[in-house]
C-alpha cells in the first residue's frame, strides 16, 4: 500500500481524494485543509486523519506521497518542504508562479530521486494521446503550423474576487486555462520557446486576463497560434482542442473526437487515406474507478504506479511543467512589451 496525504481539499483536492479513496493500492494517511467545515466532514464521515497544518500532518503521518492541490502561489514553498523530506509529490497545475521556482523544484526533485508529477490531465485523454502518437510517428510529415485552443464559461459576469482573480496568486486565464493548451502543445509538438506577439485581455475580470491570444513558435521555427477564452458561455464546460498541420496531413482534435486527414498512403494501421474520425470511446483507458473523466483516474493511477516502481515517471514530470511555465512566462512578458 502507498500512504498518500492530501494538502488542499478544494474542488480538485476533493476529487483527487475520492479517486485515491477508491484506489486499491492507496491508504489515505491524512488530509490538510484550512476550512474547518471541510475538515469536520472528512473526519466524521470518511474517518481520515485531518489537519490544518501540513507540516504537522506530514511529520506525524509520514506519507510516502503527497498530493498538493492548493492555489499556485503556495506550490513552491510546500513542494520544497515535501521534497526535502524525500516525499513523492503530485502537484496541481500550473506548477509555479514563475519558471525560476519551477526550475529549482525540478532540480531538487531530481537530486532527491523522488517521483514528481503535475496535474495536466489532458495528457491522459485518449484522443490527445493518439494525436501525440500520430505526430511523433511522423505521419503528418513535417509540421508546419499548429493551433491550440480552449474555451469555456468560467468568468461570465463581473463578480467578487477570489484567488483566481489575483495575478499574484496564479489567477487569470493564461495561468489557469491557457496553461493546459500550452502544456499540450509543448508535449505533442515541442516546447514553445518564442512568442512573437500576445494579447492578454480582460473581459469581465478587474485585475486578470480572461482571454489570451498569442503568436508563438518552437525551436525549429514552426509557428503556432494560441487562442484561449474562459469567458465564452457558448461552451457548457471547458473545451480544449489542437489543430496540427503537416506536409502530409492534418489533425483536428478535442478531448472527445479526433479527426485526421492523411494526404498519402503513409498512414498508420487502423487508418486510411483522406479523413478519419476516432472517438474517445474507443481510445480511453479502462479505469477501476470513474469520477468526472477517465483521465483524472489515469493520472492518479500513473502517479501511484510510479511510486510503486511499476511504471516510469515520465508523464507530466516537474521538468515538463517547468517548460510549460517558461512558455507561459514568454507569453506574459511579450504581452507587456
Amino acid at each position: 500500500m502507498v500512504k498518500v496525504a492530501l494538502i488542499g481539499a478544494g474542488k480538485m483536492g476533493i476529487s483527487h481524494l475520492s479517486i485515491l479513496g477508491a484506489h486499491p493500492s492507496v491508504e489515505i494517511a491524512g488530509v490538510c485543509d484550512t476550512s474547518k467545515m471541510v475538515i469536520d466532514v472528512l473526519k466524521n464521515y470518511s474517518g481520515y486523519n485531518c489537519y490544518t497544518d501540513y507540516i504537522k500532518m506530514v511529520d506525524e503521518t509520514k506519507p510516502d506521497a503527497v498530493i498538493v492541490a492548493v492555489p499556485t502561489k503556495f506550490h513552491f514553498k510546500m513542494v520544497k518542504e515535501l521534497l526535502n523530506r524525500n516525499i513523492h509529490v503530485f502537484t496541481e497545475k500550473p506548477f509555479c508562479l514563475n519558471p525560476t521556482e519551477s526550475q529549482e523544484l525540478t532540480e531538487l526533485a531530481r537530486q532527491k530521486g523522488v517521483v514528481n508529477q503535475v496535474g495536466y490531465h489532458n495528457k491522459f485523454v485518449g484522443t490527445f494521446k493518439e494525436v501525440k502518437k500520430l505526430v511523433k510517428g511522423g505521419f503528418l510529415g513535417e509540421i508546419t503550423h499548429f493551433l491550440g485552443e480552449a474555451y469555456g464559461p468560467v468568468v461570465i459576469k463581473k463578480k467578487s474576487d477570489t484567488w483566481r482573480s489575483d495575478p499574484n496568486e496564479g489567477g487569470g486565464c493564461l495561468m489557469d486555462y491557457a496553461s493546459h493548451v500550452i502544456d499540450l502543445i509543448n508535449d505533442i509538438v515541442a516546447p514553445i520557446n518564442n512568442c512573437k506577439g500576445s494579447i492578454l485581455k480582460s473581459i469581465y475580470s478587474k485585475s486578470v486576463d480572461d482571454s489570451v491570444y498569442a503568436l508563438v513558435s518552437i525551436e525549429s521555427g514552426v509557428s503556432g497560434v494560441i487562442s484561449v477564452n474562459w469567458s465564452d458561455e457558448t461552451y457548457r464546460k471547458m473545451s480544449t482542442s489542437v489543430t496540427i498541420i503537416g506536409t502530409e496531413g492534418k489533425i483536428v482534435s478535442d478531448a472527445n473526437e479526433l479527426k485526421v486527414y492523411f494526404r498519402t498512403k503513409n498512414y498508420p494501421e487502423g487508418y486510411s487515406k483522406g479523413w478519419n474520425v476516432k472517438y474517445v470511446t474507443e481510445l480511453a483507458d479502462e479505469v477501476n474507478f470513474y469520477l468526472r473523466g477517465e483521465e483524472y483516474s489515469s493520472q492518479i493511477d500513473h502517479f501511484i504506479k510510479s511510486v510503486q516502481g511499476q511504471v516510469n515517471n515520465t508523464i507530466n514530470t516537474f521538468e515538463s511543467a517547468w517548460k510549460t511555465d517558461q512558455s507561459i512566462h514568454l507569453i506574459k512578458e511579450q504581452s507587456l512589451a
Binding site: I14, S15, L17, S18, I19, L20, G21, A22, L42, Y45, S46, G47, F289, Y290, L291, R292
Partner: peptide
C-alpha cells in the same frame, strides 16, 4: 453520478 461517485470514493456511504 458525479455526487454519488464522489461520495462513494470518499467512503461517505452515510450520505
Amino acid at each position: 453520478n458525479v455526487i454519488t461517485d464522489l461520495l462513494l470514493g470518499l467512503g461517505m456511504t452515510d450520505f
